[in-house]
Computed example of a mutant assay.
Amino acid sequence: MKKIGFSGTLDPITNGHMWVINEARSLADEVVVFLSENPAKKPKFSAEERKSIIALSCAEQGWENVSVVIVRGDYTARAAKKQGVECLIRGIRTTADFDYENLIQQTNVDVLQGAKTVFVMPPRDLGSVSSSFVKALEGPIGWNWIMKKFVPGPAYHAWVLSWLRKEWETLWDYEHRDAIAIAHADDWFAQLTGATAYGGAARYYHNLDHLVHGLCEIRVWAANTRPDPADVDIIKQAFWFHDAEYGHNPDPAALTNEEASAQLWLGSHLGQEMGDAAELIRATDHFQEAAITHRLKDILLCVDLAILGQDDEVYQNYARAIRQEYIHLPDATYRAQRGGALAHLSRKAQAGELFRDAYFADQYNQRAIDNMQHEMERLAVK
């Protein structure tokens, strides 16, 4: 077969869709993805954004024989046939899917004189994966770690940036800001999420995932404890910037990451009262815990350390990411230094001093102890 088509709204494209596209590649020389632009639907991403995400996702797999076409104002099956595509491919997950898709394919052929449909059945682990399933994951703590398993990398990246964008616009009250202030905030959002900060290729842990997880922790903590809204904003401001400057500078005269991040925040001129959040950023320096005080320090440190108390899969991903961030260290050196840091944190957790806020202690302390103990055991095995 020369050409085969795959159609859908694909908002976002999932690993299930990717499997079907790959099956199509085994059946034809060329695969055309027909991207529906349905005015009755309100997709998260525009048609052009979805086209880019799909193209990047296929390119990431090295699939050079896949193209993407946006269908506007026509039936997909009819548009496909006009482009010389005689068959569409669809994934069938359930009997309900079959009944629906069979009706659609009969309409496509008998009413529209469009392309026929070939049905394939995805493997069991992809049987429940759909765009609506993925969308429903967003919100609770850890949603990003779960979503990452079900969508290709470019789709995940776009989704996370979209989520962070909404958080950023809310923090800086875009609805009531003038165009100049919004443009200024936009520039800083691009800088913080870009290649020189959390979006950097070498950011294996202190990255966009870290931002999403921490902001979710802050949101859920605030919903459960009802603090002063002004304090919540200060914590969010500090968290957005607290690891913006992150590296391993051997120069003893260089600024610490925390001080460099605080200086970056002060130079952003995003708020009217900048000093409070700057001191809070400085307070995230775990090596100067006793020296730097701030009324919100315990909360921000708890948010930063909450990753230690996550379920096993998330913690394992975190531990691997930390190793990648310190890939410049020889294995023996890393094991010794990482083991020492974990032993210190574990002692604090066992003494009830790791999570100094009661809400976070109840949520994470025991699980953090267990996670760190297991990692220390793995590090000790040569």
Results as ranks from 00 to 15, higher is better:
residue 108 N to T: 00
residue 123 P to V: 07
residue 327 I to F: 12
residue 194 G to Y: 05
residue 41 K to M: 07
residue 144 N to Y: 13
residue 113 Q to K: 15
residue 314 V to P: 09
residue 219 R to A: 10
residue 227 P to Q: 10
residue 160 V to F: 00
residue 276 D to A: 07
residue 286 H to N: 13
residue 29 D to H: 11
residue 6 F to A: 11
residue 369 I to L: 04
residue 303 V to P: 05
residue 252 P to D: 09
residue 279 E to Y: 09
residue 230 A to Q: 13
residue 298 D to I: 09
residue 254 A to R: 05
residue 137 L to T: 04
residue 98 F to M: 12
residue 301 L to E: 10
residue 376 M to E: 05
residue 321 A to C: 03
residue 145 W to N: 12
residue 290 A to F: 09
residue 110 D to Y: 12
residue 83 Q to Y: 06
residue 57 S to Q: 08
residue 326 Y to C: 09
residue 322 I to V: 06
residue 287 F to A: 14
residue 275 G to Q: 14
residue 118 V to R: 15
residue 48 E to Y: 12
residue 321 A to W: 01
residue 220 V to I: 11
residue 122 P to A: 11
residue 278 A to R: 03
residue 39 P to I: 05
residue 94 T to H: 07
residue 257 N to K: 03
residue 84 G to H: 02
residue 379 L to C: 05
residue 32 V to Y: 06
residue 228 D to H: 09
residue 257 N to D: 01
residue 55 A to H: 10
residue 267 G to E: 04
residue 229 P to R: 01
residue 140 P to K: 08
residue 317 N to I: 15
residue 247 G to C: 11
residue 261 S to K: 03
residue 7 S to M: 11
residue 217 E to T: 08
residue 8 G to V: 04
residue 246 Y to M: 05
residue 199 G to D: 05
residue 336 A to Y: 09
residue 305 L to M: 13
residue 311 D to E: 12
residue 217 E to Y: 09
residue 7 S to A: 15
residue 12 P to E: 02
residue 225 T to M: 07
residue 114 G to V: 06
residue 151 V to H: 01
